[in-house]
Nucleic acid binder design. Structure first.
Lengths: 416, 416
DNA sequence: CATGTTATGTCTATCTTTATACAAAATGAC
DNA sequence: GTCATTTTGTATAAAGATAGACATAACATG
């Protein structure tokens, strides 16, 4: 009955997933908290934590929290024990980065994109840039743990593909995961950019808020929702698509979607640029509009404020429907200061029932160009470090740790 | 070190919560499925299941599922091992029932309600009626497990109280749970009636649908949402409040909320009744409108169809925002056949992007007057039988079972 | 009625986890 | 410096859970 006993003295990583997940998600920062949060016994927690510390995945920070007695030693995921590759595909450029587990950007590149070149060529470009970034990151940050792709279109997150026609011709239903897995054998996550900005906003600024709405007002208009603390995607991943809600009127302008009176056609960057152009200004994108606003041109200020009221009209509908406790307004036009915001506030407080606005705050985003990248990283880390999934992850690290010993070669345990 | 060993031969219910929950929620119907779903070993499952069977909480049905070999014995919660008390407070009547764990109605009563009498008097009435129902149910159905209250107003489910002014004067912030706990020491659940109808519709008809919308078109208009398989309540429990979304126009009618142009003021039962009255018909409630529709009065038919288009306008907004895969239309006016539905469909398919309507179906509710009661029962059972909560429940049953033996008295292990 | 097939109960040695107690460590308050 | 206080590690016996083999049960099929 001699079974091949494997390294009986080395503590095993098996079963440490729960502990690891608690640390990774920030649910527990100290051993004492781990005890309480995991429900396991002191001895078990100590044993598993030691395995994690030995593997290098978790480290003890220098930071301590005063507690009246012996201070708490703060535990944290070792940010250098792995890295992620993320890419944000925009309409003109692709922003790529390698990120550690903080998450923070380790290195980044920008590629020009020819929208017309289609998914296959574009993903090839991305794959090559990823390979270069990975080569640098691997030297100091161990394994590649996942790949994230941010796209400016509706995405079916579960299947990992674009759904419906969009600004990216040829991407509809294209097998992105399959294409990227050719070069990398790690999980690939694909998500809509506004959803990722929503996650970034939520995770980094107001992680305790349960129900919030993020509205992006840029060249186009879109939104993302956190419902019950989690991103809400809807049946096809099209939830939050508020840009093409219609308000009919006699002068309803034609939208780029082919309908009349959409919110976008009234208040998006391209619509304001259109109106400014007809008044003799030179404007095409949201950026141009913002420039004119910053020059304090009265027409631009007026149109931005009016756009705020239009967006406020839709947002008031959204507030009635999902009853958030926080609305964050971001995107290029949100940098125009409080003009957009005041228009939004005006309509929301006018239209919604007091119950819904009683505890509602409406704020400007702390804008960052790379919020989609951070959002993607958070999304990935949450999934990679989910309690049910840490098993295979730790198996990989365990295998790697073993291979540093003069032992059997390792093999990835993940399927497909 | 002699510790008081308690009945070493009798299997313990401790730890059986997970098993019980799997059976109660229908996640596993046989021993084989329990094995797979729980991840526990065969011996452990057998032991715990035996404890549950011995306690009478779970029973083996006569039903078997063919499997090619020895057929699967189907397990089920013993519907007679406990009961619930539920009450649906309407604007004119209160419908009360004792329900078993199927859930099915065991016995029921109806009380008239004087809206003006306030929460204290009304809850006293309800408490007395509950006591009578409980007396009957206790003879055959063991313990009372929980109390559910359905109210026609926005409710903060977590705190268990009405929020905001409503058709029930004096109920705002009233401590309902505290009041009902005077007579009964079981968990009390308070929820909005439309949310409960949504749960009923979801659980009984389409339990696998992840994202759906239920719209009630009766004397008023409201909606409930299932997002990611769970009821979505929003920050204050006011999610789904679509009745007072405004559509401005020159002839915007005055709403009972004080604003102009609300959906309710255009399409609710009371609004149609108002329009019919001005055309010489005698109508006041949704019921009256339905009568005229069933008499095929052209004016009533026309107005109902127009109402459908108005409701369709809001619903199209909701579809853009939350992207459900199913919309169920219920309420009194939904009994008017396809008239309302066709108006809704017309607008939704006209207004929404193809992506959102591609897999969307819009159906009539299988109407039942008591769907709020059933919804309340499902809501309660899901919570009472949640894996984390079955521990104390089983402790109670264990105590009851022990006290029937001539043994040492048992003591509840739960705190407070 | 024999056979194949799947479901279910039970046994045993082995491994995990727990409870509990005790000891050591690291700080602030005095 | 001493003391109270809280965090953290470890040792021990007892309880709990597992794997995996085996036996039995209950049906469909031919």
């Amino acid at each position: 009955m001699a079974r091949p006993v494997q390294a009986p003295d080395r503590p095993t990583l098996e079963g440490a997933g729960g502990i690891f997940s608690l640390i990774a998600t920030g649910s527990a920062v100290s051993r004492a908290e781990l005890l309480a949060a995991s429900g396991l016994s002191r001895a078990t927690v100590t044993q598993r934590l030691n395995a994690l510390l030995a593997s290098g995945l978790v480290r003890e920070t220098e930071e301590t929290l005063p507690s009246g007695g012996r201070p708490t030693r703060v535990l944290a995921i070792n940010a250098t024990s792995g890295f992620l590759l993320v890419a944000n595909v925009g309409e003109t450029h692709i922003h790529l980065a390698a990120m550690d587990l903080t998450p923070a950007i380790l290195s980044q590149t920008t590629l020009p994109i020819s929208v017309a070149s289609g998914p296959d060529a574009t993903l090839k470009q991305i794959g090559e840039a990823f390979a270069a970034l990975a080569a640098g990151a691997e030297k100091t940050h161990g394994f590649l743990l996942g790949i994230g792709l941010s796209l400016p279109t509706p995405v079916d997150f579960k299947r990992g593909c674009v759904v419906g026609p969009s600004v990216l011709p040829g991407w509809d239903e294209f097998d992105i995961i399959g294409r990227l897995n050719v070069g990398f054998s790690v999980p690939v996550y694909v998500e809509n950019d506004v959803n990722l900005m929503t996650i970034c906003e939520h995770k980094r600024r107001v992680p305790t808020v349960e129900d919030m709405l993020f509205v992006k007002v840029g060249t186009g208009i879109g939104s993302g929702m956190i419902a019950g603390g989690r991103l809400f995607r809807g049946a096809q991943g099209a939830a939050g698509d508020i840009g093409h809600i219609q308000f009919l009127s006699d002068d309803a302008p034609l939208c780029r979607c082919g309908k009349f009176g959409c919110v976008e056609a009234r208040a998006a960057g391209w619509a304001i640029a259109r109106d400014l152009s007809s008044r003799g200004f030179r404007a095409e994108t949201a950026r141009d509009v913002l420039d004119l606003v910053e020059q304090r041109k009265p027409e631009a200020l007026m149109l931005l404020r009016a756009a705020g009221r239009t967006v406020g009209e839709v947002i008031s509908d959204v507030v009635s429907i999902i009853n958030p406790s926080l609305i964050v307004v971001g995107g290029t036009l949100a940098r125009g200061g409080d003009l957009l915001l005041s228009g939004i506030r005006e309509l929301v407080y006018q239209r919604c029932l007091p119950l819904a606005t009683r505890n509602l705050s409406i704020e400007l985003s702390t804008i960052r160009d790379d919020s989609a990248l951070y959002g993607a990283a958070h999304l990935m880390l949450d999934d990679i470090f989910a309690p049910t999934k840490t098993g295979e992850l730790l198996a990989r690290y365990g295998a790697a740790a073993a291979s540093t010993h003069p032992q059997a070669p390792t093999r990835a345990t993940t399927g497909t």
